[in-house]
Every structure is written in C-alpha cells, then in structure tokens.
Design a protein around this nucleic acid. Sequence first.
DNA 1: ACACAAAACTGACCATAGTCAGTTTTGGAG
DNA 2: CTCCAAAACTGACTATGGTCAGTTTTGTGT
Lengths: 219, 219
Amino acid sequence: MSKISSKRAAEPGARERNKLDKRDRIAAAAWELFARDGFEATTTAAVAERAGVGKGTLFLYAPDKDDLLMLVMHDRLAERTDRAFATLSARAALPEQLSHVFGSLYELYAEQPRGIGVAFVRLVSTARGPNADRVHAMTQATLSRIASLVRTAQERGDVADDVLPMVAAANLFAAYFFVLFGWLSGLSPTIEILRSHLDAMIALQVRGLAKPHGKPSKG
Amino acid sequence: MSKISSKRAAEPGARERNKLDKRDRIAAAAWELFARDGFEATTTAAVAERAGVGKGTLFLYAPDKDDLLMLVMHDRLAERTDRAFATLSARAALPEQLSHVFGSLYELYAEQPRGIGVAFVRLVSTARGPNADRVHAMTQATLSRIASLVRTAQERGDVADDVLPMVAAANLFAAYFFVLFGWLSGLSPTIEILRSHLDAMIALQVRGLAKPHGKPSKG
DNA sequence: ACACAAAACTGACCATAGTCAGTTTTGGAG
DNA sequence: CTCCAAAACTGACTATGGTCAGTTTTGTGT
C-alpha cells in the first residue's frame, strides 16, 4: 500500500465514506418526505435540502426521481422479503407458505402512507436506472425462492413431479401481483379481503380447473 | 324542438358536433405523435399544435398527459378485444380460446412502436381521469368475458363444476398480465416466446399443481 | 336582428424535474 | 508542504406539464 496523508482519512477512502454517508442521508430524507407528503407532492429540491446537498448532487445518486423511489423501496422490500422467508414454517403446506410470504409483502404496502405503493408499483415494471435494476433483480430472486418452495413441496409429494417449478412460481407470483394491483387501483378496502382473494386464487391453482377423470364431481 | 338559427348549425347541436370533431382531431394528433416519437418525447404543445387547438384546450379533453394516452389506447384496445372474442372458436377447448384472446392483445402491443405499450401498462393500473376510468371498466368487462368462457367450459364438462369462474378468470388474466409485464420490462424478445410462456402457465392452471390422489405419478 | 349568459377556447404564465459549466474537495507525487 | 488531476459537488438554467384570467363562440329569449 502507498503513503497515507497524515492530514485526514484514517480509514482507506475518505471519499468512499463520504459518498456512502451522502447516499444514506439522501435515502433517509427522501423516505421521510415521501412518507409524509406522498411521492408526487415531494419535490426533488426539498429532498436535496433536507439531505443537506445541492439539487444537482441528488441526481448523481439517482438518475431521476423515479429511481430515487426505487432506492428507497429496495431496502425495505428486501428486508421484508428476507424476514418472510426466514419465518417460514418448513412443515406448513405450500398454500400456507405462500400466504405467509405474500401476506407479509401486502402488509408492507399497507403500512406505507399516501400511495407510495401506488407510485412504486406503477414504476417497478418499467423504471430504468441502477436502483430500478436492483429491484428488478430482487423480484427475479423472489421468483426463484418461490420456485424452491414448489420444489420442496414436490419432494414431499404434495405437488406432482412433472410440474415445472418456475412455471408454477410465475403463476403464483402473477396472482400476488394481480391482487396487489387491484388493491392499489382502489378495490378491496382491507388487507384481510386482499389475502382472502389471493388464498382463493392459490387454492384454485393447486387444485386445477380440470374435472378429475372418470369421477363425477357431484353426488 | 326549438327554433334553429338560420345562420349555421343545420343539425341539432353545432356545439356538440364541434366538440366531437375536436376530440377526434386531438386523439388522432396524439396517436400520430406518440407512435412516431414515443410517449415521453411527445410534448403536449406539439399535440395541441398538430390538432389545431390551443394548449389549454387539450386539457379540457384529457385532464393530463397520462389520460391522453388512455384516450388514445382505449379505442384500439376495445376494438382488438371485441375482434378477438368475435373470432373465437366456440368449439375449441378453453386453453385454445384463451391463447387466442390473449395472443390477439399481445399482438396489439407488439404492433405499437417505441414503447407506447410500456407507457400504457405503467399507467393503466393507477391513472386517474375519465379516459382511465373507461379503460378500467373495459378491463373489468374483459375479466367477465373470460369468466364466461370458463362457465361455458364448465357446461361442456371440461372444467369442474365447483370452480368459481371469476376466481379462475382472475388467475388467467393475472398470468396474461404478468407475461406482458415481463415482456415490456425487456425480457422475452419475440411474441412467439411470449405466447409459449403464457400457454405453459395456462396449461398448468388447468391441470393444477396437486398430485392426483391415490396414484403415484411415477412408475 | 339584437342582447346576453353560458360554454368553450386560448396562450401567457407558473412550478418543478432534470442539465451542465464552473467550483470545490480529495488523494497522491515530488 | 505544494502542486495537480480526477472526482465530486453545486445552483443557475432549460424544457415541459399543467393552470387560469381573459376572450371568443354558441344558443336562446325578446
């Protein structure tokens, strides 16, 4: 290693430290204002001021306001997802496991004030930028984790062997997302109704639409 | 009917006529520019100029730019949906019927240049305004039509009697939407791959995840 | 034909997301 | 310590979505 100036920088990279500090301050300021005033009503100037940086600096850490929301939401979503999978009962049946995971995420959205969820979901599919990419990667990871749950259920004998776990995961996640959309669009007032809708959809996916062969379903 | 001024207005409501004309000119201008330059790159000033109206007038017909996109897309989406259901083979099995309907909609998005679909799907769940409401109502109507297909399949004996058609429709539409999202996010290059993904998901929904009772699935 | 109220229209104006030329800070070399 | 280049930072500036007070057009009663 080379010389280190005696002036400052006890740790390697005072520059790096500074950047991280600033990033955190920006994320914190953005979160507070988004939560208090809503996403649309919060101006980038206000976030910059609260974070104690210039307006231009803001756009060095997130290329646009949308990506700023992704920056803020990523951590919370990641934390909640990890927690949901960590508290999963390994013995529970697949539908209960899914209800637990998806229900945890619904709760996260329900906790947010003032339609932050609306803004986030509106952007999550199409936003560009480094933070949007991180969120996108996380979604893919969640899909894989759900596929793993399906695979485990297969090994237990609860799910047919020739089901492709990733296809099943896509169907299950699609249902979660669809119900979330409906809620954010203003339908389904309470989170309980939300969960019951999702549970019904998952139950149907498990059971299948087709009428069982050689066996009348009635009488 | 009352007196009619001899000056103009041969038909009842010159005012009404004029408004409709203007609405059509605005919709046409918006469509042309969105298609040529993309949604984001098109300015409301340019749309107003091309439509031959003042900038302020634009916002009498759509409360904001987002709703302008809804105005433009509603008609195309409605036309395509009606056509898809009209050309449906009543004899075909449910999965083929669904593939036909959803495939037709995928083609509509695939025809649009420059990510108009991206902008539309981004907004469709959360946009406000009269045109957004019309689109939203149309989505609900489509859900009902899919539920009808399920009900018909039930009557034919292809679908179990105790399946709730609206729950099934929600699952099926969710799969359609999820695949569309993935495509707009940049995955799945061709529309053929898109359709094959959806077909696989639908097939799994029909068959169900559960292992059939009393019958080992493997030799 | 005229007067008048209601509806429709308009573009100058405002607020804010995002840019960029110029400034400050950083960290190492001599 | 001094000097320098690169990185980081900044706020005046630009472009554009949306507003609104003032103007024009329309329909109707006399």
